[in-house]
Amino acid sequence: MGHVALFLSPSSVASLLHGRRSTRSSAKKHRRICSSSVMATVSEDPIREWILTKGKASKIFRISSIGGGCINYANCYDTDVGSFFVKTNREIGPSMFEGEALGLSAMYDTKSIRVPLPFKVGSLPPSGSFIIMEFIEFDRSRGDQSVLGRKLAEMHKAGKSDKGFGFHVDNTIGSTPQINTWKDDWIEFFAEHRLGYQLKLARRQWNDPIILELGERLIKNMHLLFKGAVLEPCLLHGDLWMGNISSDKDGNPVILDPACYYGHNEAEFGMSWCAGFGGSFYKSYFEVMPKQPGFQKRKNLYMLYHYLNHYNLFGRAYRSSALSIIEDYLRMMRVSTV
């Protein structure tokens, strides 16, 4: 098929529906491509084509590498109308970046916390994909924790769905598929599309029937943890850890690289074990989104999803943490672990 090219505006997220950070080796290949693409004709380079047409630039002064983690490769394109942030992946098609762009646009539309505005998603010849978005110059700090907590709560409060729990498309959490098929019931959604999916991956990938069996016992009984809780679908970033939190030059918090969906707001804290949220963060958050009965009991349940994902992505070092959470819950619920 030809290039997949989508213009992403904050007010027309639905238009996307019509329409992994790369490996080291593909990153080296991309450096060679980028160095030569400055001299290439517009038609040979869809990134350059968009910047010089829809992006309204007349000159690209330089293309500089700014890293991109372990799945995608990232560049800054400096032009006469400002800078553009571009992520590319030479192995994965546009669907991953389409999911990211939909999430960024949905968060942007809440007019709460700052996120990079996505402009364009497309495919790269002969394979791969790209996303062009707003370039934000980050400050060295991660900003004020209390402001972050308040802004995040404002996003959760503003970002609502009348379709239930899920998202417009499936996306990825890291490089793991994240299933977002709509459901009316949060506990059913979290059981099937979050914990259940990760447990089955662990069974297939690591030949780990024990964690699957015990995890399924937890799933059958986890409704006990939600007594008295109000379960409304809120727009979640979905992968909020330290590496995805920053601040702009004015000190405003910025969140990026989302795995968005509409879920119970407390699920946003599932990566708190590597997010560095402090007391001032939670204090300001709960002033906007009041704490619900049973919050402390559910915290580890939401962490479990991410521990299982890390187990499936990075190996057995995370198995003990995931299994410990499962066994602790089963003991608390007086469910046999034997």
Rank of each mutant, 00 (worst) to 15 (best):
S324E: 08
L301F: 01
K297L: 08
R203G: 06
S284R: 00
A267R: 02
G270Q: 05
G243Y: 02
Q296E: 15
I255K: 01
W241P: 06
E287R: 03
Q198R: 04
I255H: 06
W206N: 04
S272D: 15
D239K: 10
L231M: 14
L224M: 14
S272P: 02
I211C: 10
K283L: 00
R203E: 15
N309Y: 13
L235S: 05
G215N: 11
D257A: 02
K299E: 11
L201V: 15
Y261L: 04
K249R: 07
L330V: 13
A275F: 12
L195F: 01
H310L: 05
N309F: 09
K299V: 14
K227Y: 07
L301Q: 02
P209T: 11
F269W: 05
K200V: 05
D257E: 03
Y318V: 07
H306N: 09
P258D: 11
S320Q: 14
C234V: 05
H237G: 04
G278M: 05
E232H: 06
E232K: 14
Y282E: 00
R316T: 15
L218C: 11
N312T: 07
K220S: 14
P253Y: 14
F226N: 10
D208V: 11
K291E: 14
N244G: 07
H264C: 04
P233R: 00
S280Y: 00
Q205R: 14
P233G: 07
I211V: 15
G279W: 00
G243W: 12
K291C: 11
C234P: 03
F226P: 08
M289Q: 09
L256P: 02
G263D: 01
H264L: 09
Y197F: 15
M242W: 05
Y329M: 10
L240S: 01
K227T: 14
R204D: 14
L304P: 07
C234S: 13
L330T: 12
G294R: 03
F286M: 12
G263R: 05
A202D: 12
L212K: 04
D257H: 04
Q198V: 03
D239R: 15
Q292P: 04
Y285N: 00
R217N: 09
Q205I: 13
H237E: 02
Y329G: 03
I326M: 03
G228Q: 03
A322R: 07
E232G: 01
L201K: 06
M271G: 00
Y302E: 11
M271Q: 14
S247L: 00
Y307Q: 12
C234D: 02
I219E: 04
G228H: 02
G294S: 02
Y318G: 10
V288C: 11
K200W: 04
G278V: 01
L218G: 06
L236T: 09
L313I: 15
I326A: 03
H264N: 00
S284F: 00
S272K: 10
A259I: 03
N312C: 08
R217M: 10
I219Q: 00
G196H: 11
Y311G: 01
Y311R: 01
D250H: 13
Y305R: 08
K291R: 14
D208I: 01
P253T: 03
I245D: 08
D239Y: 13
Y307M: 13
G315Y: 11
V254K: 02
S247Y: 02
M271S: 07
D328W: 01
Q198W: 08
Y318M: 15
L330I: 11
